[in-house]
């Protein structure tokens, strides 16, 4: 699935939050959306969730305008893991994941054996098969994110959008989640906070600042020390990770002490 965000401007209460953004995720690529707080990452993603209509430009999936599809049709082609994944009620993990089947079901159609198989398989892929009968609210932060990824998998959509999926997770859960989504074989667009994660996991990064694209390309080409200092206001060192050998960005406060 190719995601194409072309010239998108999105406004909240008449104020443009993102302006004229171009972003392409090629099939199977992991694209990282990075930028300081308030740079418009979440707002841009909302135009792909279809919860904020762009005031200009277009979002398309394999050339079809996302905003001209029916809501259910769109949900069969792209799945979403939002930042505030809390559910307001007592759902079991299996019930949460089964919500992902909604775009495949008629309004009065009940989940059948095939749906249950998809749910079980999704839980298996995120390593939560054992937890399917637990209450979602009793899961740890890392398990919750995995359950929400499983819900997205149950949508069987080729494109997955994630908004800061590693927020509030401990280090092991953060890396585990990134390993997991990278292994799914889907086209990924994720807003990420951690530059090191972006460097290590993403095929391409798109950097937003003040609602506009500052740069895009392979992480090591984009995230030079000068560029990081300019956009994020920190000093950066780019090298090979001492343990994994993958690209690695170390950052330090702009003021030495």
């Amino acid at each position: 699935m190719r995601l194409d965000i072309a010239g998108v401007t999105a406004e909240i209460d008449g104020t443009p939050i993102v302006s004229d953004v171009d972003l392409v995720a090629e099939p199977g690529a992991f694209v990282g959306l990075i930028g300081p707080n308030g740079s418009g990452k979440s707002t841009l993603l909302r135009t792909v969730y279809r919860s904020l209509r762009p005031s200009a430009g277009a979002v398309s999936l394999d050339g079809d305008d996302l905003w001209r599809m029916r809501a259910r049709q769109a949900a069969r082609r792209r799945a979403v893991v939002t930042q505030h994944g809390d559910l307001g009620g007592e759902f079991s993990v299996a019930e949460v994941v089964a919500m992902g089947r909604a775009p495949h079901k008629g309004v009065l159609e009940r989940e059948n054996a095939a749906d249950r198989a998809v749910v079980a398989d999704s839980l298996e892929r995120v390593g939560l098969a054992h937890a399917s009968d637990r209450l979602f609210s009793t899961l740890s932060g890392g398990e919750r994110q995995r359950a929400l990824v499983a819900r997205a998998l149950a949508q069987e959509a080729p494109l997955l959008i994630l908004d800061e999926p590693t927020n509030h997770l401990d280090v092991r859960a953060q890396l585990g989640l990134l390993d997991l989504v990278r292994s799914l074989g889907l086209t990924l667009l994720a807003a990420l906070h951690d530059l090191d994660h972006a460097a290590a996991y993403c095929d391409r990064v798109v950097v937003l600042q003040h609602g506009r694209v500052r740069a895009s390309g392979p992480p090591l080409e984009v995230l030079t020390p000068e560029f990081v200092a300019d956009v994020f206001g920190v000093r950066a060192h780019i090298g090979a990770h001492p343990i994994t050998g993958r690209p690695h960005i170390a950052v330090a406060s702009a003021k030495p002490w």
Binding site: R46, Y49, R50, S51, A71, R72, Q73, A74, A75, R76, R78, A79, V80, T82, H84, G85, D86, L87, G88, G89, F91, E95, M99, G100, A102, P103, K105, V107, L108, R151, A152, Q155, I161
Partner: peptide, 24 residues
Amino acid sequence: LVQGRSMNALLAGDDAAAGLGASV
């Protein structure tokens, strides 16, 4: 009852509900 699935999705937030194909 017909909207039961969408009401469930709405509990997860407007963005998540839209992502799940509900017309929020």
